[in-house]
């Protein structure tokens, strides 16, 4: 259902773009393909590794570490993994969906997704180059704290 919406949005935008300017549309599609090709290799690697890990971790184990009843400890683990790792969203979302199916809680997965996107421990040195130590560290600390709030909120909405 949500995938259909995605196709409808993309299709409508593409049709509009094509009617307005064919040359620009062609450039856009070329860029789209290039961007796709660029992320494909790391993407496939993570896909395989995640599948192996998830196959070994059975439902009860996932539930124990990241399930609804793992509580704050699960949120903490998920958010720390998210803050430290550098996984593109295109890889993280399918993996997160697989984890949810395998018994992880929405709160824990939201903590992972949010800190993955907003906090970047690995890229901190780069961020410091552009924003200085004060701003970069402050931004990451605030973003991490905020991710915990996001987790609680998203977990609550999903459970409604």
């Amino acid at each position: 259902m949500d995938t259909i919406i995605l196709y409808m949005v993309a299709g409508a935008c593409l049709a509009w773009s094509f009617l307005k300017n064919r040359q620009k549309t062609r450039t856009a599609l070329k860029k789209a393909f290039k961007a796709f090709e660029a992320i494909l290799p790391p993407f496939l690697v993570v896909l395989v590794l995640v599948s192996i890990v998830l196959a070994v971790l059975d439902g009860p184990t996932i539930s124990l570490i990241l399930g609804k009843d793992s509580g704050f400890r699960g949120v903490l683990i998920a958010s720390l993994v998210g803050a430290i790792t550098l996984i593109p969203g295109f890889v993280a979302f399918p993996a997160a969906a697989a984890l949810l199916q395998g018994g992880a809680g929405a709160t824990q997965i939201a903590a992972f997704v949010s800190s993955l996107m907003m906090v970047g421990v690995v890229t901190l040195p780069l961020e410091i180059q552009f924003f200085g130590k004060r701003v970069a560290i402050l931004r990451n600390v605030l973003a991490y704290g905020f991710s915990l709030i996001v987790a609680v909120f998203v977990g609550w909405v999903v459970s409604l």
């Binding site: 995605l6 196709y7 593409l14 549309t25 856009a28 599609l29 393909f33 896909l47 196959a55």
Partner: peptide, 29 residues
């Protein structure tokens, strides 16, 4: 393992093409 890799691959193959078309269009417009 095959089930999980299939599940993820299905999401990816379905969702990635329109997402990247949108990214390209945004970049240009």
């Amino acid at each position: 393992a095959i089930e999980i890799i299939g599940f993820q691959a299905k999401i990816i193959l379905l969702v990635i093409p329109p997402t990247f078309v949108l990214l390209g269009l945004l970049d240009v417009w």
